[in-house]
Design a protein around this nucleic acid. Sequence first.
DNA 1: AATATTCTTGACATATTTTGACCTTCATGC
DNA 2: GCATGAAGGTCAAAATATGTCAAGAATATT
Lengths: 159, 159
Amino acid sequence: MESLTEKIEKYIRSLLEANSADEIILRRKELANVFGCVPSQINYVLQSRFTPERGFIVESQRGGNGYIRIIRVCLSGVEDRLNHIEEIVDGVMTPQETRRLLKNLEERELLTLRERTMLEVILRFVDEVLVSFFDLPAYRRDEINTELVRRVLKSLAII
Amino acid sequence: MESLTEKIEKYIRSLLEANSADEIILRRKELANVFGCVPSQINYVLQSRFTPERGFIVESQRGGNGYIRIIRVCLSGVEDRLNHIEEIVDGVMTPQETRRLLKNLEERELLTLRERTMLEVILRFVDEVLVSFFDLPAYRRDEINTELVRRVLKSLAII
DNA sequence: AATATTCTTGACATATTTTGACCTTCATGC
DNA sequence: GCATGAAGGTCAAAATATGTCAAGAATATT
C-alpha cells in the first residue's frame, strides 16, 4: 500500500521528469485538490521528501499570486559538493539518521551499493569497538561515527 | 531442533528466492503474526542474520505505512574469495602493510579508487581516535585496524 | 557442573503520516 | 495608505508503525 505522501512525492517527481526541467512551480491548493487532501499535507510532503539531503530546494511565497517552487539541485563542482556535505552532515547523527542519509545518497547515485555496504560494516565495527573496549556512551559514539561519515563523504566528494 | 530465529531467517530467505528479487518489503507485525511471536523477535532476526557483513542491507521506516525492506547484495560462489581474504589479511598488519594491500587490491581491480580512498580515510581517522582519545599503543591500534580491514574485505567478497 | 552465549519476551520509547484549526504574508483595488 | 481576500505556514493531536532494552529462558561451551 502506497501512502498518500508517497503518491504526492511521485507525482511531483513526474512533473519534474515530464518537463525535463530542474524546477517546477506549484499552487498548493490545486495540488491538494488533485489528491483530495488538506493543503498542509503538501507542506508535509515537501518537508519530508524534498529536502536538501535528497537534493532539492523549495522556495515559496505567500499572499496573492503565491506559489511553491521546487528546484532540483545539481552539484557541478567540487566546491558545491563539499558545501553540500557540510550542509547535510550537520551536527551529530544517530545511527538511524546515518543509515537514512546513506540510503538517500545511494538513491541519488552519489554512493554505490558497495560503498554504502562498506560504510555500514565499518560503522558497525567502529561502534562495537567503542562500546566493548572503551564502554563509550551512545552520544560520544554518535559524535565519532558522524565525524567518520563526514570525512569519508568529503573525501569522496573530491574524487 | 530449529530455533524460531532460524525458522524466520529461512522464511525470509525463501521470500527472497521466491520473488527471485534482490529485495522484499515486510510488515513487522504481520511477519510476527505468521510465527506467532512478539514483533521485536523480528528485529532480533534482522540484527543477527541480515547484517551487511552477511550481504544484506535492511532499511525501515516507523509510523504510518511503516515497513521493513531487506535488500540482498550477495551473489554466489563466495567460498574461494573468503579463503583468499583470510590468506591475504593474515595476522596483524601495520599501516604501511595495509596501504600496500589496498593499493594492490586496487591494481587488481578488486577495489575501486573511491573504495580504496574511503578505506584509507577511515583507517586514518580510526587510528587518530584511538590515539588521541584512548592513547592506545601502536600494536593495539594495528590489531583493530587490521580487523576492520578484514571485516570490510570479507563483506565485499560476498558482494 | 559451571559458565558463556544466544534466544525470546514484553514493557516502554520513538518515528511517520494524516487531518484540521488557526496564523502570517502579500498583491491589489479603492 | 490601507483594507481585503487569496495565497501559503505552523502546530498539535490522533492513529499507526517500528526500535530499544533488559531480564529470564534455553543452548552451547569448557
